[in-house]
Amino acid sequence: MRALQLTTTPRPFFDQQVAALEARGVECSTLSVPRTGEDGRVPTDYVRYLPGVLREVGAGESYDLVHANYGLVAPYAVAAARLADVPLVVTFWGTDLMGPEWLRRLGVACASAADAVILPSRAMADALDGDYTYVPFGVDTDLFRPIPKDEARERVGWPDEENVALFPYDPDRPEKDYERAKRVVSLANADARLRSISGVDYEEVPYYFNAADALLVTSERESGPMVVKEAAACNVPVVSTDVGFAADAVGDVTHSTVSDDDDALAAGLDAAFGGGRSDGREVVSGLSVETMGDRLAGLYDRVLDRRGDDRSAGRERNDRVSESGRRTRRRGGAPAD
C-alpha cells in the first residue's frame, strides 16, 4: 500500500505516525507546505504548494490513498485524491476544528468529501458535522517513560529540595500564556518554583518532565497538547487549562487537574506536589504509537476495501445495463436510458 501524506509541518507525533504505518507495510511519501518567510509561512507558500501536490499524483506516481494531516492542507488533499481517483482520509489536529471559524468551515467542507475522518480527541466531535473514527495520537513510550526524580534532576541540574512546576514551552509564545502560569504558581499554597524549557533536544525532554513535580499548561489554545500525553507516559501529574484534548487525555489520571479556573489549577498543583507520581501510563487510552499504528493501518484497509466494493458494484451495474441494452436490441428496440 502506498499513501501520500500531506501536512503543514511534520511534528514528532506525525513522524511517529508515519514510522508506525511503514512498520506495518504502508509506504508513505510526505509533502509539507514550503516555508519561504523568515518568520513563518506566507500566503504564496500555500499557492506554490498546490502545483507540487498535483505534480506528485499526476507524474506517474501510483498511490492507493491520500491522507491530509491538519485541516489547512485538506483542500489540497481533496484535489489530489480526485486527480488520482483514490480514497481520501482527513485527520484534524485540534486548532483546525476548534480555532478560527473560517478554518473550521474549511475543514468541515473538506471532510464531507473524505472517505474517512479521524479525530485524536472525542472533544473535537462537537465541531464536526458527520461521522469520524477516534484514533488518539500515540507517544513513544520507550522514550517517554518513568525515570526516578533524583536521577532526572541530576541529569538536568536542578536541586532536589524544591517543588517544580514545569512550563513546557518558550515563555515568549503569547498563546501559551506564561503570565498565567506565574499567577497560578503564586496562588498555590506550596512554595514552588516555575521552570520552563525551550530549544531542548527531543531525546532530553523526558528527563525534564521526570525532574518536575507537575507539568503546568496554561495555553489559551492548543492543537493537542501532546505534552500532556508525554507527561502522562512518564507518570508525571498534569495541571492544564481545558484546551485541545487535555481533558480527554488526562481527565481521569490521578493527581492531575484540567480546569479554566486559576484557583482550581493552583489547588491542582498543591495536590500534585503532595501526591507523588500519577498513574497516567496505565490510564491514558491508546497511549502507545503501536496502538495508533494498528488503528490507522486497519482504517486504511477498510477504506480501500469499501472503495473496491463500490467499484465492483458499479461494474456490476454497468454490466447489467449493457446486457439489458443488448437484449433490447435483439428484440429490435432501442436500449433504455
Rank of each mutant, 00 (worst) to 15 (best):
P120M: 08
A125R: 15
D131N: 12
D305R: 14
D64F: 01
T91E: 13
T133E: 14
N235K: 05
L287Q: 06
R195L: 10
R48P: 01
P75Q: 01
P10N: 13
V243A: 05
V236K: 03
D191L: 07
R122S: 13
V164Y: 14
A246I: 12
P146W: 10
E27P: 01
R315Q: 13
M226F: 06
Y134D: 06
A188C: 07
S223F: 04
N189S: 14
A152Y: 05
K182L: 14
F209K: 09
V33R: 00
A232S: 10
S285Y: 12
D248Y: 11
S223C: 09
G40V: 11
R281N: 05
T9S: 09
P335D: 03
G40K: 11
V18T: 04
V86I: 04
F167V: 03
G332M: 06
R48W: 03
P206Y: 07
S196F: 15
V321H: 12
K182G: 11
W93T: 05
F13Y: 15
A59G: 15
V250K: 05
P237Y: 09
P43L: 14
R173K: 12
G71R: 01
N69M: 07
G58Y: 10
G280S: 06
L106W: 07
G251M: 08
P146H: 12
C234T: 11
T95G: 07
G37S: 08
D310T: 10
L143T: 15
A19R: 15
R183L: 08
M1Y: 06
D96I: 00
R180L: 15
E203T: 15
D260N: 15
P100M: 03
R317E: 15
D172L: 13
G268T: 01
L119M: 06
G298Y: 08
G308M: 07
C110T: 02
V73M: 04
F13R: 04
R105K: 14
A114V: 05
A114L: 02
S259D: 11
T44A: 13
L128M: 09
V227S: 05
A114E: 01
D129T: 13
R311N: 09
L6M: 04
G40N: 11
V26Q: 02
G293A: 12
K176H: 10
F245L: 04
L215G: 01
V66C: 00
G199F: 11
A125M: 06
L119V: 07
G276F: 09
R104M: 07
R306H: 04
P51Q: 07
R311C: 02
C28S: 13
R195V: 14
G251V: 04
Q16D: 15
V89W: 00
T254M: 02
G58E: 08
V139W: 02
D170W: 09
R48T: 11
A181V: 03
L269F: 11
G25N: 03
S288R: 10
R82Y: 09
C234E: 04
D15F: 04
P335C: 03
H255A: 10
R307I: 01
I147P: 04
Q5H: 15
G251L: 07
A264W: 03
E101F: 07
C110M: 09
T9N: 12
P136F: 01
V289M: 07
P225K: 08
